[in-house]
Simulated assay, not measured.
Amino acid sequence: MNSILFGTQLIRYELTRSTRRKTLSISVNQNGVFVVSPIEIPLEKIEATLNKKASWIVKQLNDFCEMNKSFQRRSFLSGEKLPYLGRQYRLKIIKMDATEPSFRFYQGHFLANLPNDIPEESHREILQPLYVEWLKQRAFEFSLNRIKRFTLKLQLEPKKVIIKEQDQRWGSCTASGNILLNWRIFLAPTSIIDYVLAHELAHLKHLNHSKEYWETLQMLLPDYEQRKEWLKINGGTLNV
């Protein structure tokens, strides 16, 4: 195991040399940092690249660490943290007279307004649907922006992107070219959302899981297998 020092933080990484690899690849998952390098690239150059990307690597490691915490059913009480895009944001509840329940994101935290007479045991029943609705709206806009990086390579675009409740799938692609996404995937880090997006977009070209499909997915996202494994291990935590 190799390592570099970023400030006071030691970043350990696993280095693999490959005769097939033409460029340097750096990936981060729940198990750590992984580098695949062509044989001819010297270690000094590899570590110089790692140092340039150190802040990104640390952020990814922190995101995975946060998401690896065991899932706990939220009560939607003031001070509790709610997930979005792999991070946790604190919920602040303001009780008011004669007000309709509302939910929004404001200055780095979630803010909810509730009538004074709502007991704490009813918070989840009222606020969880509002949170999910907020998440769906933000997820739709987020998806359209993230998809662009893949559609340029694929030269295909989905007809529609729909964020919905899906019990068994993180996403799906219809024969008519619509991409359906489970709102829960937007609780995960962006790198994992990208995997689900790329996975479904590849079906626009191959509506199956043939060899050609996996080659298309690898073209869109070379390290998709590591992201797929993260989702397999941590998918159960993506809920509220």
Rank of each mutant, 00 (worst) to 15 (best):
I11L: 14
L15E: 13
L15D: 13
T16K: 15
T16F: 05
R17F: 14
R17Q: 15
T23C: 03
I26G: 10
I26P: 11
S27W: 02
N31Q: 14
G32W: 07
G32Y: 02
G32V: 14
P42E: 12
E44W: 01
K52P: 09
K52C: 14
A54Q: 14
W56A: 13
I57P: 10
V58Y: 08
V58L: 14
D63C: 07
D63T: 02
D63E: 15
F64I: 08
N68E: 13
K69Y: 12
Q72G: 12
R73P: 12
F76V: 15
S78L: 09
S78H: 04
P83Q: 05
Y84A: 08
G86F: 02
K92L: 12
I93W: 04
I94E: 07
K95W: 09
E100K: 11
Q107K: 11
F110D: 12
L111R: 02
A112W: 00
A112C: 03
L114V: 06
L114S: 02
P115F: 05
P115W: 01
P115D: 13
P119T: 06
E121L: 02
H123V: 12
L127N: 04
Q128W: 01
P129V: 06
Y131G: 06
Y131T: 10
V132I: 13
L135N: 04
K136I: 09
Q137I: 07
R138W: 05
A139Q: 09
L144W: 03
L144H: 07
R146K: 07
K153C: 03
Q155H: 08
L156E: 15
E157H: 11
V161Y: 06
K164V: 15
E165T: 13
R169I: 12
R169A: 14
R169E: 15
G171A: 03
C173F: 14
N178T: 14
L180E: 11
N182L: 03
W183T: 13
I185N: 05
P189L: 11
S191W: 04
I192H: 03
I193D: 06
D194L: 06
Y195R: 03
V196P: 00
L197K: 03
H199W: 01
L204G: 04
H206W: 02
K211D: 10
Y213I: 02
W214C: 00
Q218R: 00
Q218T: 05
L221P: 01
P222H: 02
P222N: 10
E225I: 10
E229W: 00
E229F: 00
L231R: 01
L231D: 05
I233Q: 08
N234H: 02
G235C: 06
T237M: 01
T237F: 04
N239C: 10
